[in-house]
Design a protein around this nucleic acid. Structure first.
Length: 392
DNA sequence: TCGGCTCACACATTTGAACGGA
DNA sequence: ATCCGTTCAAATGTGTGAGCCG
C-alpha cells in the first residue's frame, strides 16, 4: 500500500481497516456512516468527455499516472477531526474486453483480480478543515500491470474495466479509529470508470489525452506563433504575451495590504457591494484566485470567509466569469455581474499543480482604488485594485 | 499471423540546487 | 547573513513506433 506520510501506528490501523475493506468491499455495515459529507469531482466535464468514448488508462511496468487526474473537493467534514483519504480501484465486472470496429466489446472472462492495494493520500491523516480548504488530488497515484510491483502502485489487468473509489476514514482515536466502529465514507463517480490498456486502442482517447495533458504537448499539431490563449483575442486592456514570457504578477492589478489571512495565504473582505477573496497559494510561482461578487447572495458567505473555505455552489450561489477572456471553469476573476455562469468558483490545490489561468492584465494595471477588507464586522485590512483592469 | 506488450526515444513540464543582487 | 528572484540542469511525465512474444 502506498501510505504517504502516515505514522507507523496510523499506518497499521489503516492497513487493519483496509483488511476489512478487502474482505467486503461493499457491505461495511458494521462501520459508522459519515452523514453530511459531500464530494465533488474536479474537472467533471473533462472526465465526462473521456467517459463518452470510454476512458482508457495506460498501465506500465514502472507505473503510469492517471489522466485525467482524480481530484475531488469535499464538504461536510468536521473541521477539527482528523481524516484519512484513500483510493482503491475495483473491477467493474468479470469480463475481459477487446477493441474492434471502433468499439469495445466483451472478449472473454476476466483474469484474477489483484485486490487489496490502496493509495493513501500523502496528506493523511489531516484535519477536516485541511481537506475542505483545497482540492484533494490523487494525481500521484500510479497504475501498473506488474503483479510483483514493489512500489505500492495499484495493480490492474490490461483490457479490463475498472471503477476508482474514494474512501474517507475518520482517523479519530476517541471515536475508535481502527476498530470495526470506525466512521467512513465511500464514494465513486460513474464517469471515472476506465479500461486499463498497455497502449491506447481508441484514437479518440489518444487525441483527448494529447489535447488535455500538458505533458503530451509535444504531440500537438499546430505549433508556430503560439501565444497565450487570452492574448489571442487582442483588446485594449490586454497585451500580447509570448508563450514563454513570465505571467504578470497578481499584484500588478490587485494589492492586499494588512489583510486577515483566512488560511495560510487567503484573505477576504467585502464592502457594501461586493465580496472579494484573494488567494495566493500553492504554486511556487504566481498562482492565484480572486473572487468578486456583487449584491446578494454573495459569492461567499461570512461563515465561509471565517473558515477560509468558500463553497459557492454548496450554497446555491452562482459565481460568474468576470472577464470574457477567462472561460467558465478556469481560475481567474469572477463576478456576479456578467451573465456567464461559472461552476465551480474556486479551486486551490495544496500540491502546487493547480491550473492557473493566464493573467489577462498588462503590467501597467496598477492599483488605483482601495476598500476595506473585513470578515463580518471586523475591518482588518485594505484591498486595492484598478477597476478598469478588473472590468468592474 | 496477430493482438498485446515492452522499451527506447523525443518532447514536454516540474523540481530543486546554484547563483547573484538587494 | 538572509532573503528573494532567476537560471539551468536533472528528474519526471507523456505518446509514439518498432520490435518482441505467446
Amino acid at each position: 500500500m502506498a501510505s504517504g506520510g502516515l505514522s507507523t501506528s496510523a499506518k497499521g490501523k489503516v492497513e487493519q481497516l483496509c483488511d476489512h475493506l478487502s474482505e467486503d468491499l461493499v457491505s461495511l455495515t458494521s462501520h459508522q456512516r459519515m452523514d453530511g459529507v459531500q464530494v465533488y469531482l474536479h474537472e467533471k466535464d473533462l472526465w465526462t468527455k473521456f467517459h463518452s468514448v470510454m476512458t482508457e488508462m495506460i498501465i506500465t511496468k514502472a507505473g503510469r499516472r492517471m489522466f485525467p487526474s482524480y481530484k475531488i473537493r469535499v464538504t461536510g467534514l468536521n473541521p477539527k477531526a482528523k481524516y484519512i483519504f484513500l483510493m482503491d480501484i475495483i473491477p467493474i465486472d468479470s469480463h475481459r474486453y477487446k477493441f474492434a470496429d471502433n468499439q469495445w466489446s466483451v472478449s472473454g472472462k476476466a483474469e484474477v483480480a489483484i485486490l487489496g492495494r490502496l493509495y493513501v493520500h500523502p496528506d493523511s491523516p489531516a484535519l477536516g478543515i485541511h481537506w475542505m480548504r483545497q482540492l484533494v488530488s490523487f494525481h500521484k497515484l500510479k497504475l501498473t500491470n506488474n503483479h510483483l510491483d514493489p512500489f505500492g502502485h495499484i495493480i490492474l489487468n490490461s483490457m479490463h474495466k475498472y471503477q476508482p473509489r474514494l474512501h474517507i476514514i475518520k482517523a479519530d482515536e476517541k471515536s475508535g479509529f481502527g476498530s470495526p466502529n470506525t466512521a467512513f465514507y465511500t464514494h465513486s463517480f460513474p464517469e471515472t470508470v476506465f479500461i486499463a490498456v498497455t497502449s491506447y486502442q481508441n484514437h479518440t482517447i489518444t487525441q483527448l489525452k494529447i489535447e488535455n495533458n500538458p505533458f503530451a504537448k509535444g504531440f500537438r499539431g499546430n505549433e508556430g506563433l503560439d501565444l497565450h490563449r487570452l492574448s489571442q483575442t487582442p483588446s485594449k486592456e490586454y497585451v500580447l504575451v509570448p508563450q514563454n514570457t513570465t505571467r504578470p504578477r497578481m499584484l500588478s492589478a490587485v494589492q492586499v495590504t494588512n489583510g486577515l489571512p483566512l488560511s495560510e495565504s487567503c484573505m477576504a473582505g467585502r464592502d457594501a457591494k461586493r465580496t472579494v477573496v484573494f488567494c495566493s497559494v500553492m504554486s511556487p510561482k504566481d498562482a492565484f484566485a480572486l473572487f468578486i461578487s456583487a449584491g446578494e447572495p454573495p459569492c461567499l458567505k461570512d461563515t465561509d470567509l471565517s473558515s477560509g473555505v468558500p463553497h459557492p455552489e454548496q450554497h446555491g450561489n452562482i459565481c460568474h466569469c468576470l472577464s470574457p477572456s477567462v472561460p467558465s471553469g478556469s481560475h481567474g476573476l469572477y463576478s456576479t455581474e456578467p451573465a456567464t455562469p461559472l461552476q465551480p468558483c474556486m479551486y486551490i490545490s495544496s500540491t502546487g499543480d493547480s491550473e492557473v489561468p493566464d493573467w489577462p492584465f498588462s503590467q501597467d494595471c496598477l492599483p488605483q482604488q482601495t476598500f476595506s477588507i473585513s470578515t463580518g464586522q471586523r475591518v482588518c485590512g485594505n484591498l486595492s485594485y484598478r477597476a478598469d483592469c478588473l472590468g468592474l
